[in-house]
Design a protein around this nucleic acid. Structure first.
Lengths: 145, 145
DNA sequence: TTGACATAGCCGCATATGCAGGTATATTAG
DNA sequence: CTAATATACCTGCATATGCGGCTATGTCAA
């Protein structure tokens, strides 16, 4: 059984879809000055309260190193506060600031427009199936031997 | 109807899944010295013959600027040849070299292991559905007004 | 022919991604 | 208590991503 890689590569298919949709969301979010990655970080911090880099990275299915760099622009712009962990001084606690919350709320409507736009184009029934499937994929245990 | 962004963001779900799966494929591909993006470029060039940056970018659902940069390491390592277009001298023709083909063939088996590994973990029936769905997503017309 | 417009790819800028390997702090075995 | 180990984060490296605006080339109409 021979599979032709480019045509049947699941990873490529996923990346293409992610690129395509990310571009759409980013275009919608542009007036807010946030990208979809940054919006996701702020939204997660709002939903789950202060988090360390490790725990937030896990929640976002992101490498901690990557997150550690992604927070820098947000910190620079005062959207999040980064403080030394009290219990564990190795860790850093990330917290949404008032300014961050304000920016998040402003970006919210642009996000909603993007989500609605995708929904309209793709079909809201399929859309919710898609999210469910993506969550399954993201939580599928994959171990390279 | 209010949706909570982080939990129901289709874009975030897609990106998370793409990150998760890409990491897995990249780990498998590591011994070949290629990343999944590079593998995809070489594979597409093999399948479709010489292509310009624009046409290859479209085939890969990638911004031409991005592709223009992604080919640089491949060109540097002699895996692809880049020549001025004959008909249209603005364009560049990308062609897989013999070395590139060799590398691609070597990477092939690592790719196959990754694909098989994902298939085993995720379920081959769901896997093929997933690819189909991703292609639908990637080809869904999305226009930010 | 030549001027207006379109197109292919480029550069600068900023962010996104993750591996290897390092430091500082915490935890735990002896 | 201290030495071994584990953990949280960081740095350097390399690639990935796409926008805005640029140059060079091509096309087409006046």
């Amino acid at each position: 059984m021979t599979l032709a890689p480019p045509e049947f590569c699941t990873c490529l298919a996923l990346r293409q879809a992610a690129r395509h949709v990310s571009q759409f969301y980013d275009q919608h979010l542009a007036p807010s000055g946030l990208r979809i990655t940054q919006f996701s970080i702020l939204a997660k911090l709002k939903a789950r309260g202060p988090l360390t880099i490790n725990s937030l990275a896990e929640a976002l299915v992101m490498d901690p190193t990557t997150l550690g760099r992604n927070i820098l622009p947000l910190q620079r712009d005062g959207l999040i506060a980064v403080v030394r962990g009290v219990g564990d001084r190795r860790s850093k606690e990330l917290r949404l600031t008032d300014i961050g919350l304000e920016r998040l709320n402003e970006a919210w409507k642009y996000w909603a427009a993007a989500q609605a736009g995708f929904d309209a184009a793709f079909g809201s029934r399929q859309d919710s199936e898609l999210r469910t499937l993506m969550r399954t994929v993201a939580s599928t245990e994959l171990v390279a031997e």
